[in-house]
């Protein structure tokens, strides 16, 4: 458990520094790369929690697909080399209360539902089978609902790309 705590601290520090650099960096691609660091840190945390499948999926989906598409898009359009001065607009100050609100809500939700509960000492790896049984069993309806989000995104992309 000691080793896990030490690594949790290391990952946490990396993630916090990365997250701060995402918003302070003056270059779009650098910001995206810092975001990759944060997402990779999250994958590391999942591994510490013995959630291998979630960790690998995090890498596969967020680092391997979402961020690649993000970088691809910015490279095609506006990823200049060097510093850019016009990345911040005037409404950035509005972000602070929103972030605080989000932090408060999430902290409340976490403390409310878990409280003083402790993780079991000898955490075993949750097999992929158990996860899929859960997703396609009790959580089938939310899973379907989520897939409609993807459908909406696909239709949106087609509508945007069509010229007529």
């Amino acid at each position: 458990m000691v080793a896990q705590n030490i690594f949790f601290a290391i990952f946490a520090v990396i993630m916090v520094v990365g997250a701060l650099r995402v918003v302070t960096s003056n270059n779009v691609v650098h910001a995206a790369l810092w975001l990759v660091t944060v997402l990779a840190g999250a994958a590391g945390q999942y591994i510490l929690l013995s959630a291998e499948f979630v960790a690998v999926t995090q890498v596969l989906v967020y680092i391997g697909a979402v961020m690649v598409l993000f970088l691809f898009g910015t490279m095609l359009t506006r990823a200049r080399l060097g510093e850019e001065t016009d990345l911040n607009n005037k409404t950035w100050i509005l972000g602070i209360p929103v972030a605080l609100l989000l932090f408060g809500t999430m902290s409340y939700a976490l403390i409310d539902s878990f409280g003083d509960e402790k993780l079991p000492e000898d955490a075993t790896v949750v097999s992929t089978q158990v996860i899929s049984d859960q997703i396609f069993g009790p959580y089938l309806i939310p899973f379907w609902a989520l897939s409609f989000v993807l459908l909406a995104a696909t239709i949106g992309a087609i509508v945007l790309a069509r010229k007529d």
């Binding site: 990759v36 596969l60 391997g64 790896v125 992929t128």
Partner: peptide
């Protein structure tokens, strides 16, 4: 236990090298 999913994840990371080298 996630075996090949790991290999797939790694192969999806490999694109970063090429992409960032070009940019």
């Amino acid at each position: 236990p996630v075996g090949f999913l790991f290999a797939l994840a790694i192969s999806s990371i490999a694109v970063y090298g090429i992409m960032l080298a070009g940019w």
